[in-house]
Design a protein around this nucleic acid. Sequence first.
DNA 1: GAGTGGTCTAGACCACAGA
DNA 2: CTGTGGTCTAGACCACTCG
Lengths: 265, 265
Amino acid sequence: MAQPKTPKWRQLADRFAAEIRSGERPSGSTLPKISDLAAELGSGSETVRLAYRALSDEGLVVMSKRGGTRVAETLVKIRRDATFRYSRTAREAAGAHGAFEAELARLGLAYREARPTRIAREQAPARVAELLGVDPGEDVLVRDRVMCADRAGVRSDRATVVQLATSYFPGELAFGTQLEADDTGPGGSKSRLADLGHAQTTITEEIDVRAPTEAEAGALRTTADRPVYEITHIGRTAEGRVVEVAVHVMPVRLWRLAYTFEVDA
Amino acid sequence: MAQPKTPKWRQLADRFAAEIRSGERPSGSTLPKISDLAAELGSGSETVRLAYRALSDEGLVVMSKRGGTRVAETLVKIRRDATFRYSRTAREAAGAHGAFEAELARLGLAYREARPTRIAREQAPARVAELLGVDPGEDVLVRDRVMCADRAGVRSDRATVVQLATSYFPGELAFGTQLEADDTGPGGSKSRLADLGHAQTTITEEIDVRAPTEAEAGALRTTADRPVYEITHIGRTAEGRVVEVAVHVMPVRLWRLAYTFEVDA
DNA sequence: GAGTGGTCTAGACCACAGA
DNA sequence: CTGTGGTCTAGACCACTCG
């Protein structure tokens, strides 16, 4: 039976993972620095780094350039439940980012945006333009957010960036409406779109995992070799018209996704 | 603005990706072998390997130990639409794996199982037992499949393993029924469960991305550093009882996922 | 500014799959 | 069996970031 040998870095990562999960290495404690551990084990530093990187991808440790490698404070991934998130009642119940904020709060984290939402009229990427059914050269409304989660009292420039979210709306529907305002009010842009007579009733989300672009890696403070989710969210009205396309990019190591739906028996 | 320098291996990967997508390097053509290219570029072999690995993760090339590195025959990922997949009509329309087979056919691939479905009465993993609401020590019905996709005329031991699928059913419902048969008939196990009065009406799927276990890496013919999707599928009856939990493990590089659902406006 | 992880080279050796 | 990719060491140098 094709059973490849377990690489040494994997074994090392598994050993540390066990120590972390057993509580032997508590949250916040520092792991040996790469060069020291390599010397101690008689391994190359690259081997140790691969082990640490695997732990980082699993969300067990956080690596930083000066601070060394530490056991993560939050050992569980953020859960994103796409189904309930988008019902109007849920959206308007607890503020604009209700479901998301509640989920973060459960992990002891606070939601924040890294900078004000960027609102612009510009061309959409080709794939988005096609989905929206607009001409590739035509301007659409773009709302672009950088979403963070901090532990209380953490300096803002050290916060964890958890998601990049860019929404696209057809100009015909959105220009000159409250969708161009900084604050879109209770329930957010989806509720305003509904108020304008373009309520989204059918949502399709496509999930892909890929390497981040250079810009994404920078914004998410991750590296080119750590994969990200790319979720393309497509909102359709009852008539089947696409009124919103949103692209969410988020590091795989921070998130777990969930979908609930009904089927005919 | 934090803009990390693009690593050399990324630049090299991007160059090849462009050449592949432009058609300059046609499907099936062989890339220079790692050691040659490294010598030609004056780089270390590891750098070239990282570039090739990134291309492989993106599904653009296939690396094999003797055959070298070739441009992939199938440049698109397999799409898995979870929503339509599970309606009874869709399931029974085109054979047991209707939606999946149709999707593969669109890519010029044929569906096959690597070995007969393994059917056993045994303990479920702790997490699954909890979801099913059975005692951790209690036996449940396990159906375990290894799913492949081949191009026509490919030797069976060379086929691409695309998914490991393990379903768990409470013994109380499943033991002694057709769910233990090799062939569960039209519509598969979900339809049989429905015939027994336990139709699934609400489906929850949780998606995670993680490193494969050693056994999974072997079965999927992938390596420990390439991530896999782990989809936990939970089927509930109208009364809210969990009657099936299935765990699907599949290489991230081969798949793209899609969900469609209705929301209240 | 100092110290950490990150990238890269150079090259030995290993393990697996294909001709 | 042979040649390919895969793993690993050793060590130089780079770049980021936190104190």
